[in-house]
Design a protein around this nucleic acid. Structure first.
Ligand SMILES: [Zn+2]
Ligand SMILES: [Zn+2]
Ligand SMILES: [Zn+2]
Ligand SMILES: [Zn+2]
Lengths: 136, 136
DNA sequence: TACACAATGTTATAATATAACAATATTTAA
DNA sequence: TTAAATATTGTTATATTATAACATTGTGTA
């Protein structure tokens, strides 16, 4: 098997994982699972479960993130996100554009935030809602 | 119609809205829509749509919040939440206990946070994940 | 009363996600 | 190398979450 021409980013991805990730990366915006399914059927993926299994692994790896309020998946826009554990997004309520926020100030604040029991959390998901530049 | 013995909190709630809110408040933990439905059938609610319509209104009013990562609904634990626009929760990944976070420091930080375009957001949802006191 | 509007009731269906089981491929280690 | 362990795939069926569409009833107000 030839490995040399595979990009480093996808080195440990299986066939279906690559197909699904490629599709999501091409879209630049969040994609829903069944929309992914529809769009990769020409590549041989036939069933929802094949998509969902790939999505699960890609989320685990931090290659994609789930936008929980939209039930949709977006490629990680932040090359430093090795693990899907601490994510922040802005979501335009008009056009649904989603942008991953990469702010060390924000991530430091949230990682050091203590609740009233003194508990800290290294894992979180934050979704901001508003209007994007274009829609304002 | 007697209004005097209704709590102020539920003054403008319709019949189904009251039934659904009472159920969620009794549970103290997030409830899923179909679990609510099952539990309120003795009160005359028969169809999913009756539950979802009540949930929509209650979320709008800020009486309950949706825990997006769990597709579940929890009563507002923070009497000051008049509108469902800026919420934060901690979620135990072991026992699924959810607590609404009410920290003026956190809410001030998030409300004043500016993304790289200088955009501020008054509406957000933050979900922290970890282990609760009991599960640690 | 008459009108507008909110809420309800009901059936059907859409959209999202997982269970269960069999087969194949890949990695690990004796 | 070979066998076991692990990961991935394929497939069908089904579970779970949520909304569409339409008719009816209740409520507030002019
Ligand atoms: Zn990321
Ligand atoms: Zn926009
Ligand atoms: Zn609240
Ligand atoms: Zn716990």
């Amino acid at each position: 098997m030839v490995k040399s021409n595979m990009s480093q980013k996808q080195e440990h991805l299986s066939k279906n994982q690559k197909i699904v990730l490629d599709m999501i990366e091409k879209s630049n915006q969040p994609m829903k699972a069944y929309s992914i399914l529809f769009n990769v059927q020409k590549k041989g993926i036939k069933a929802p479960l094949q998509v969902y299994r790939a999505l699960d692994k890609l989320v685990e790896m931090g290659k994609i993130h789930k936008i929980e309020s939209r039930n949709a998946f977006i490629a990680c826009q932040n090359s430093s996100c090795q693990v899907a554990k601490a994510t922040a997004f802005s979501i335009c309520e008009m056009c649904e554009k989603v942008t991953e926020i990469s702010s060390s100030g924000l991530s430091k604040y949230l990682a050091s935030f203590k609740d009233k029991d003194g508990m800290k959390y290294s894992k979180y998901n934050l979704e901001f809602f508003g209007l994007c530049k274009k829609c304002r």
